[in-house]
Design a protein around this nucleic acid. Sequence first.
DNA 1: TAAATAAAGGACAAAAAGGTCTTAATATAT
DNA 2: ATATATTAAGACCTTTTTGTCCTTTATTTA
Lengths: 150, 150
Amino acid sequence: MFQILIMFSKACEYGIRATVYIAQESLSGNRASLKVIAKEIDSPEAFTAKILQQLARHNLILSTKGPHGGFEIAPENLYHLTLDKIVKSIDGDEIYQGCGLGLKACDADNPCPLHFQFLEVRNKLSLMLHTTKIYEMAEGIVDGSAFLRR
Amino acid sequence: MFQILIMFSKACEYGIRATVYIAQESLSGNRASLKVIAKEIDSPEAFTAKILQQLARHNLILSTKGPHGGFEIAPENLYHLTLDKIVKSIDGDEIYQGCGLGLKACDADNPCPLHFQFLEVRNKLSLMLHTTKIYEMAEGIVDGSAFLRR
DNA sequence: TAAATAAAGGACAAAAAGGTCTTAATATAT
DNA sequence: ATATATTAAGACCTTTTTGTCCTTTATTTA
């Protein structure tokens, strides 16, 4: 019976942190290897690999095998990529659906007793995810005003 | 890799729904038995029992054994009880702490790149939980404007 | 073309959340 | 007192999430 309330899954946490790190490297034209990523964001390497595979399959990041390979974000994506894409890619599409109290059917016509309050909070979160850009987060790391580990 | 983003644990969902149902019965001076609660909120009986035990241990609800026993909310609690108490009792105290990106140390001085955005959403949720009263939710059930199952 | 480097993929293991079952304890009514 | 109804508690099982390890595939460089 533990668990934090507004939360990302571990997969999502690592996914976001990894992507921000990759973005940071991409800003200066470098690829990042899995090994370095996992070290820099302090995440389990093999698990992080799975997550990055998934992000690559969804074309949010690019992966290249072989020497000097690694992960990067395509220039045309770098300035557009928002948090919600990462989250959706990892935790699935139903993020913004589903009744807060777990009812199978819950809508404005047949609401659970928390429906409207819940909607407000969820909309706020949704807005946050849609407007937060990965490259902005990455810039915070570059200029030292934010951190990806510790 | 599934999971909904702003969410209660299943334990919390059942706990909230059960409490609202108990409040509804308490409003008209009745106790509710586990069997009836589980049926009315459509939850697994034995699991619901565990959750109610916990709420009772924390003195959020009262339980009475034996014939005509069951669960109720003490009159002096009934109009004061808010959602956050239920959630805290079930999911623990760290609900409003913890870095959104999973960093061990993350605060205004040493923030993760999502710290301030996250805080806003969390504050909104916190406010919602602190201001939503159980008896108000129960009244919604009574007057037919909201539902605990389906 | 061979060796080295890196990601991809699949099988497996561990931990946490969700859920069940059985027995014990307690209250009530007769 | 006894039978019955009800919650409490603990042991156990199942599913999901998190995490590891090993083999395969692709790319680069010598």
